[in-house]
Design a protein around this nucleic acid. Structure first.
Lengths: 99, 99
DNA sequence: TAAATAAGTTTATAATATAAACCAAATATT
DNA sequence: AATATTTGGTTTATATTATAAACTTATTTA
């Protein structure tokens, strides 16, 4: 029984290996809560793109999305979950194997 | 004339924001020279995928690819260019804006 | 009341990543 | 010697992604 070589580079979670999703998670990791408009502004993304990516993060259980109102206007609020936080930490750790 | 807000997150060079291409550049950044088979093994990639990604890095001028022989067998040798090294450094720097 | 704005969602498209299939030459097997 | 296998790749096909354009619905503003 030989020693298998340990993989040199760690897998990069494809859900986080996306510029916009990574930016979103990065923001939520330090803010704990942010709404759609704030995220759109800080990430300089289009609403369409952001909407799609939030949906993916939400499906993966990395964030929670709450659709409510601020006065009469719709307001979508996002929070990172523990799963999401862990995934973010793992992603950062995995990246280190590339440097 | 107002102060424009500085973009919070830096752009991630799409050429390097790819697991396999990043692994290749990472290897070449520290090795200065590596052949196809070595890269395939260290990155645990398929030959087809590697071939495509080497071609992209080469087209971008990030690496130089030399096709020769080792005895009678084909041997493809790769080296990082200064452009490639700079791009890698910039990529790492840009990533920091996400952490 | 019409036009513009806000806050998103849905849909279309182009680019990507990836593996499967293929190829030519060298080596090993019978 | 003929055939099969391995080596070192390339080309092609496919499924997934990332992204913006187009659309929707409600709310202000003129």
């Amino acid at each position: 029984m030989l020693l298998e070589e340990v993989a040199m580079f760690k897998e990069l979670d494809p859900l986080l290996h996306s510029q916009l999703r990574l930016a979103v998670i990065s923001l939520l990791a330090s803010l704990e809560e942010a709404d759609f408009v704030y995220l759109r502004e800080k990430t300089s993304s289009t609403a369409g793109n952001l909407s799609v990516q939030l949906e993916k993060l939400s499906e993966a259980g990395y964030i929670e999305v709450e659709k409510g109102y601020s006065g009469k206007r719709p307001r979508t609020t996002c929070r990172i979950t523990e799963t999401g936080r862990k995934a973010f930490e793992d992603y950062v750790e995995a990246l280190k194997s590339y440097f």
